[in-house]
Design a binder for these strands. Structure first.
Lengths: 197, 197, 197, 197
DNA sequence: AATGAATGAGAGTTCATTCAT
DNA sequence: AATGAATGAACTCTCATTCAT
């Protein structure tokens, strides 16, 4: 029905308001320093009302992270066409940096918010796992191609992940800085060279 | 008096125990997930006793950060002799990375612990400010030397700070990675080149 | 009207479903451990819908108790024909025990559910009061007959009530125990003798 | 030290006050209808202070129950001398009823307070288990003596427990009634006969 | 110097209940 | 007639902190 659809829309709109309020607060003050009461207040609700939309505080964070990962994944899949491994890695790295630059808040929530609080199992972590799996399979392919020489797969996955994270941190820690495409490429290239040493 | 001295020593020894216990806990579990009770327990005191040495929880964190910055500053001043700006920057960058590698815990506390909790004014932030001032003055010198071309001083200071931070994060986020001196130098060089673009 | 009647039927049918769901939950989990939400869920309604049939949670319990007392009363009145007091008491006692055996759930709700929650005044307690009055008048008759010797009426009423309660508890606390008619009679007889001491 | 002893005494005195306040409230209003706030208030403390003496609400109930069982057990062991099984059972039954009569509040807490809330494992349930074991071993002895004919041990234990409970309920449900020793004996005798049928 | 006792404030969460639709 | 949305009040429990001893 039209009414049913409208209700669904309405519900999503309100979820959105809560998520936005929470995101804003989490980023500015940190997960632990934000209470449900304050999220509710900021979203224009009573504390209890929040629980109609999210079953607890952690779930709000999970939702936000998941949203970030979903957006991230969409972008990363765009680069999937290339079959040449190194080219693919370059593309993925570029995508990673761009995402960090264009969505610094999501990035912060996805990677910097204290992780103990987040449920890494369960439906809401699915997207983040998918992202990591996507990354892993890509790296494995490259390792198998011999590009990094004789290196342990696990080590390569971890090392590259850390490196890419570091790069992105480098970008987001100075948030106002806007880097041109060429800048990103150069930065990426020099890092890849370094990691390949 | 001798007694007075001995008392002072004793006091410092006990402060030390508290700081060590707190540092350990903060790093492993995060500032917010550590209660005063647990710090006290780990240090072998009652919760109330802590307050004879630190006026509140935040102050303990501030002390730890300050200690980190002090150690950092000592190291950075070693590189001060050189008068040639670029060489100085290279040295400073190297020192920065080395410090992050050798003292990842301090580094984490100094730069990654949620900052809202820390009093950035007041005596206990002095050392961190001094570190930043030291860095700033160094960069300003280099900018004036024309090394970075025609660039805004403020932008250069901020950009380099962010870059160096990012590099250190890159290093500490994959903690098991041990980089050789040559690695550090290479990494630094490529980044400096990038920042100079 | 026919429609009116049908509506009334429908209303009662729905009340019934709620009462059944609540009864089931109350007995298995205790009044306080059952929320309106769960009653509604079990009855196939939304929490709010319940309030069209019962004005609050306590009233549901009152209804259930009242139903129990009504059924109980019906049975007790069957034994009313006898005019000989002692025979009457024996019959009533037998009826009491049988009821406790055959409807342990109702019995539990009527006598064991925490009473603070139940409104002892008001319309819904009428039946339970009527039961008690019925019992009282019966005992008074017996006392007047001299069967118990020279005893205070009030004391006799209370003592017998307590005794009968205890007997029924004895029966229901070991629910699997099925007592034959002869067992019940014997049990009753020995207790009556005791109470008559 | 004397001070240490005195402190211990003081601590126990305060625990006592909390236990008494809680016991009073639990009995009058039921476990679920009493909040920690109210216990605290009644004991003259702030809500948080209670937690220095008991780690949660359930533990307060466990303590109270355990106290009851301890007192009960002490009494039951007095009857242990007799070696003749049936005599022993009679003594134990007498002790049971006396206890229920003399300590109706403890009795209510021990047997009538909703059990879901109580931890049946752990140190605080030890005494109640001991009481039950004591009872069980006594019944088993009697069954083995052939007194009840050819009966399943388990059934006998359960049946007698239920019966004794019922008797005690009978006594406590009319609390003001004071029964003489002879009354108790008679009551007991007729019940034993009944159970033996 | 150190502590046990105590507390006010506030955390996340649940509940019975109301009301516009 | 029924519901989804919303709330105020209450819950248990934890925390940083104070203070008399």
């Amino acid at each position: 029905m039209n009414t049913k659809e409208r209700k669904e829309k309405e519900r999503e709109r309100k979820q959105r308001m809560i998520l936005d309020a929470a995101k804003n607060l989490f980023i500015r003050e940190g997960f632990d320093n934000v209470s449900m009461r304050r999220i509710a207040l900021a979203a224009g609700y009573s504390p209890a009302a929040i629980y109609r939309y999210f079953s607890n505080k952690r779930e709000i964070l999970s939702h936000l992270r998941e949203e970030g990962f979903r957006a991230f994944h969409v972008r990363q899949k765009q680069y999937d066409q290339s079959l040449e491994p190194v080219k693919l890695l370059r593309q993925a790295g570029r995508g990673y940096l761009r995402f960090a630059m264009e969505h610094p808040d999501d990035f912060h929530l996805m990677f910097c918010t204290t992780c103990e609080e987040v449920d890494l199992e369960g439906e809401l972590a699915a997207e983040s796992l998918r992202v990591f799996e996507h990354f892993r399979s890509m790296v494995v392919r490259i390792v198998k191609s011999g590009y990094f020489g004789d290196v342990d797969e696990e080590a390569a996955v971890f090392g590259l992940w850390a490196g890419v994270q570091g790069l992105a941190n480098l970008v987001t820690s100075g948030r106002m800085q806007v880097l041109s495409d060429r800048d990103v490429d150069e930065l990426l290239e020099s890092t890849l060279n370094f990691l390949r040493r």
